[in-house]
Each structure stands twice: as C-alpha cells, then as structure tokens.
Design a protein around this nucleic acid. Sequence first.
DNA 1: GCCGTTTTCGGCCCGACTGTTTTCAGTCG
Length: 572
Amino acid sequence: MRVHNAEIVNTLNRLADLLEIDGENPFKIRAYRNASRVIGGMSHEVSDWVDEGKDLTDIPGIGKSIAEKITTIVKTGKLPYLKDVESHTPAVLSKLMRIDGLGPKRVQLLHEKLHIRSIKDLKQAISSGKIYELAGFGEKVAKRIQEGIKHLTEYESRYALNEAVPIVQTLLSYLKQCPRVTEVECEGSFRRRKETVGDLDILAIAVDGKSVIDYFIQYDEIKEVISQGKTRSTVRLRSGIQVDLRVVPAQAFGSAQLYFTGSKAHNIAIRKIALQHNLKINEYGVFDGNERVAGRTEDEIYRKIGLSYIEPELREDRGEIEAARDNQLPKLITLQNIRGDLHSHTDATDGNNTLAEMAKAAASKGYEYLAITDHTQHLTMVHGLDKKRLLQQIKKIDRLNEQLNIVILKSAEIDILEDGSLDLPNELLKELDLTVCSVHSKFHLSQAKQTERILRAMDNPYFNILAHPTGRLINRREAYQVDMENVMRAAAMRGCVLELNAQPERMDLSDVQCKMAKDMGVKLVISTDAHEVSQFDWMQFGVYQGRRGWLEASDVINTLSLSQLQKVLKRR
DNA sequence: GCCGTTTTCGGCCCGACTGTTTTCAGTCG
C-alpha cells in the first residue's frame, strides 16, 4: 500500500492539533505544521524518497524526529506516536478545532471538564447550559460556537477564483465610493491567484480607519458583522464568504499589502530574515528600533532585507525567498504572452457556438491561431466526431481559413482508450495540425494501469498534447490515480506537451505540478477548453495558475508564433 | 521540533479584536 503525501500531511496536521490541545510547546506544534505544509507543496511522493533511501532531513523544515515519523508512516501505514497521543486526547477533538471560535484551549477545557468528544456533545452542553460553568464561556462565546457549527456544514467548500471575481469587484466599487478611502485592493489568496479562495482580505488606505469601518458595515450584501474595531472588521456576506477589511495609512500601504497578501508561511519567513538584519516587519512598516525605514511599497520592503521583488503568485515559501536572494526568480508568463488557444469546442459536439463564431471570437482577442478540438466518436454522449464528420470539419476549416485573419488549426480532442490506443486511426490523425488527447473514461484503473495507458498513448507519433492530465474537478472529483512523474518523464523524452487546462473547475495541472513539469523540462500549453465564445476569457485563470507554478513564457508553447509552434508539434 | 553569515543552545513573526475580565487570555489572520 503506497502512502501518498496527502496522508502524511493529514497525519502531521492532526498530530499538531492534538498536541496543541494538550498544551504542548507551541514551537513544536509549529514545527509539525510547517513540515506538513512543506510536504503538501512537494511535487514528489515522499514515500518514493523513503523507498530510495534518501535522507528526508534534506527537506527544509524536516529534522531527525519528523523524518523518523514519516518513515514509520510510509513503511507501516501507521504512527504509534499518534496513537499514543490519541490515548489521552481523542482524535475527534481536532475536528472541534475547525469550529469558528474554538481554539485549542477551549477544546481542551470542553474535553477535560465536560467530556465533550463530538459536535453532538457540544450542542447538548450549550442547550443544557452546562457550558456556562466553564471559565471564559459566556453567552457571546456560546452563540459564536453555535454559529460556527452551522457554518461548518453550510459553507465548507472554498470558492473557485472565478466565482470570487464578481464578488470582489462589487465590493471594491462600493468601498471606492467611500470619500475617505484613497485606495482599496483585495489581497490574500485572491491576490496570490490561488485556484480557490477561502475568504476575502480587503485592504483600504485611509487616515481615519473608524469612519471607513462604519461605512463598510453598511454594505447591503453583509449578512452578519463578526467583529468591528478601529482598523479592522470581519463580516460574512450573504453569499457565505467571509470578508476581512483592514484600514491603514498611506505610508504603511506596502507593508500592509505584504502582510495581508501572505501567505502566512511567506510572511513568517521574511520576518525572520528581517530579524537577521536587526529589523522588524509588521503591517505598519519595517522598523529599525523605533524608526520606520520602509513600508510605502512592497518593493522597498523586499529590497530593504536584501531580496528582489517577489510576485504575489510565488509567495508560498516554496523556494521563492531563496531565489529572490540569489536573483534567480523566474520572469513569469503574462496574459499578453499568449498568442493562441489550442483547445476549444464547437456545436459540432458539445460546444454552444459555431466554428465561425469561435474563430471570430479568438481573432478578436488578437490571437494568431486557434485549434478546434471537438470530441471524437468514443464520447457518444456528446455526439463525438467520427471519421466522416471530422473530414467535413477539416474542409470547412480550409474554407474559413481563406476568409479570416486568424489561422484555425485542425485538431480534435481524442479519447485515449483503455488500452492506450487513440480513438481515431493514424491515417486520419496525420491530416490534423495537432492532436489533443485525453482520458474521459475508466477513471478507476489502478495507478499502474492508468499510467501505462497514458504512456502507450504517448508512444503514438501523432500524440501532441495530454489534456487535463489528472482529470480532477475541484471540490467535485478527485484526480485519477496516475504516476505523474513517470508521465512527465515520458513526455519530456517524446516531445509531448502537457496541458494546463484553464477551466476554473479543472485548473489541471495544479501549481505544484506545473513547477514539476518545468523542472523536468516538459513543455506546457495553457488552454481554455472553451465550449462557447465567452469562455476564451478563462485564459487569464490558466495564466494565473501557470504563474503560481513558476512558468515563464518560454515554458509554454502557445506563446510561440505559428511557425515556431508548428516546429514543436512535429515530433518526428 | 527545527535551525545556524552571531549560535549545536536558545531562540523561534506580529498585531487586532472580543469577551469576560478587573489586566488579559483566547482566537484569528
């Protein structure tokens, strides 16, 4: 039984929760959480490293003790130390920690004094009034816990980035109307362009914080005000999303941006570096003793501590700080670098617009080329193209190409069948400018079989692009089991390209996998998989994800001119 | 528990808001 990184991440996090409830040394707890985060951000399976006998303490944040525990987890699937902790602090208590308003201390008290071990117990303790017997538990706290329990089930999932965009836009335009606000921005994971955002962190510049907060809480989309002070406030919108507003003066804008953008791990890391320079960073600036020495811009702050400017998308403490120190940061890809889209559908299968409409829409974006990639026959439920219909489409494209100022590339999204063969014969594939190949069936094959299936498909000399390589749907479907490292190695050797699918619910590959591909020398393509003209706009989300994966224009083939692109697509 | 351009020991990011307190602990970001 192979132990995946996700399981190690979970185990270490649970352990940290329970130790925190136990009142253990906070720095020890941080060490576990930090190790968990580092492993979560790794592209390689730690279990492979253990099998290969590599030294896990080479991983930053992992020392002798945690390395031993991970090795135990990988080799036995269990961790006796965790069992040990659970014998006096039940595992379910870590669930209670997820309730808003409940931290380690209160959970500990609830468990010790009232023997509460579940949400049900907790509800009972509140309704019976027993909870008020505990020190520090008044009516407000009890109410907050009740609300917290409700929210736990109501708003569990995070929002896809594209869903957050209109919510942010409406809120920002409201805040901009506040006469005292001179600048307002959304920071946090939204600014880091994570594929999903949990809450919104809004930063406003104003001299008088209180008046801005007073204005903010009048916003008519607010469902409840959770907290409200002189410089910050937290509310929940009717949509369920939580919003934190922070107001700072203009001279602190950069430091507040930095602080509010995060990530938390990135902030901790740069504050540590500041300490090495005998400086202190907080949200109000960089301080040498009591003197503020920087703070107006982020750039100024990074330079003060010997780093070059780090783009928000990179701020995850996954090597960007070391790269900034060594002047080795990537020059990240931008939307302007994109010259075409290589994955789109028409009404010939499951798209909503005609071939001509799609082509014109792509041309109006300034693209040089667009690949039409309708589904193939195996996908019967969308009326996939057979040989005859594909040939008809090819002729149609020839005619259209004479009329339009964009080159339509002949292609198809070809099903990879269970045995690794492609859903159309090679004599037809050779008529195409490129192929986009994907797995649409048999998601539950074993990892070995799924990997073998894809490798076999790549053996076909007409195979160009592996579309949505893991098949995951955010919040809805797990990725199928596939050895991505193996797939990438094969792609690099064969000159195959991996897609970063920009559909907001796919975002497939992940940021970490993009970086892994780049590091392994695999070329990527960022494609929208548009099923109607408006979906070409999803390109921006793909670019964001690529930036989070450290991609530069040179890593992505649809930044190439048409003639350069055609060279890359010729595998033989 | 981790880590080292002061260090293998003694540090470990920093501040706002709330509630239940009589000066601060707990939680959150």
